[in-house]
Amino acid sequence: MAEGGGAHSPLEQFEIKSLLTTLEPGETMGLVTFTNSSLMMVATLVLITAFLILGMRRGALVPGRMQSLAELSYEFIAGLISDTVGSEGRRYFPIVFTLFMFILFGNLLGMIPYSFTFTSHIIVTFALALIVFIGVTILAFVKHGMHFFSFFVPPGAPVAMWPLLIPIEVISYLSRPISLSVRLFANMLAGHTLLKVIAGFIGLLGVFGVLPFALVVALTGLEILIAFLQAYVFAILTCLYINDALHLH
């Protein structure tokens, strides 16, 4: 990757740094080490809680601004669920809502200069995707039992094709957590890396540094949009997978 001057790599911004303790050389991080990533996760938790609880403090029938926003987020996800899953999806509203808000606020907090985007780490996004994947598969097993495996037989296919089609369907199903996690991770990684690289040129070009600067401003706007979009895509795919598990099996 291009360097912006000095020995800084644009990937340095993704390093996990321990905040409260200093590591001895050769020592690896423990389980409970409080890192910049942990800080952002806790900040996300606090912000979401504040947003929801403080927003609803008045509980007025004619809502004010904060309350409107909180209700908007509620209704947005509720509408999403009822559109994709229908009325049975109601019980999965908390998990979808939590996922959406967590990823959204995580992405957005990462847009603050000098902060850290915890969704830019594949292990975090993979863990979230696994939660969805395993949850949905267990749900399908609980609801349909062994009939779950009929899911992998595409409708209207001749039996001779099954040995070919079934592995493909299985692979397609198993690729869901991968695609879910890689999509989010790659978007965040690419966005922030790009920002860092372009920003690196600002100092180099002197007077003409206004061009990369303008580009960084535009990219920041784009990245904020992508923050929302990726949270939305994650949420709606979760809803679709829940729908798959509940129906169509």
Partner: peptide, 10 residues
């Protein structure tokens, strides 16, 4: 090496 801490706090 950084995975455990992230997973825990997540």
């Amino acid at each position: 090496t950084v995975w455990p801490t992230q997973l825990f706090w997540l």
